[in-house]
Amino acid sequence: MIRLLRKTVATPSPLISIDPSACERVDISVVGREIEDHVKRLFRGSLAIRQVDAGSDNAAEQELVALSNPFYDVERFGVHFVASPRHADMLMATGPVARNMAEALRRTYAATPDPKFVVALGDDAIDGGIFRGSYAVYDAVKNVIPVDYEIAGDPPSPRAILCALLKILETIGANSLN
């Protein structure tokens, strides 16, 4: 906990919010190719994502699952979903973090080896969304674990997620160049 807090405090400009509504009409194969390039450069060609459901209403999950179908087929870009946080490079947290799920979320974060990134996916995960203020939730993933990026949308469409992922990768690339 203390380590976590210290890290939270120590990390400068921890959060980058991305609103993917702008890229509704882009060609996903173009986006995908760019993602692929970035993944090659930044993640040695392999980006493993672990999706964490922290009390979500399953809307975001539907969209994430769609990423693997033959239409979007993110696998071809070197991105794949894994079964354990131990295997992951990136955690995609969804949902407003129900109180019962907070500890699980923290443990998931702790279980993920470095280097790791946390992405809060969907409005619920960013600020609680329609659940905000409820006694049963912590309102946002960032209230529980340090979040690096946020992808807005309720829920974001697969295309939007892809687009946002590209932006995230670009940001990571820019940061790592600095």
């Binding site: 060609g45 087929d73 470095d114």
Partner: peptide
């Protein structure tokens, strides 16, 4: 289309560079 046939190499290469828990 699927991932490239060399994707497993990339996965391994990446994993070798990650920390461990």
């Amino acid at each position: 289309r699927g991932a490239s046939v060399f994707q497993p190499y990339r996965d391994l290469w990446k994993l070798f560079h990650k920390d461990e828990v």
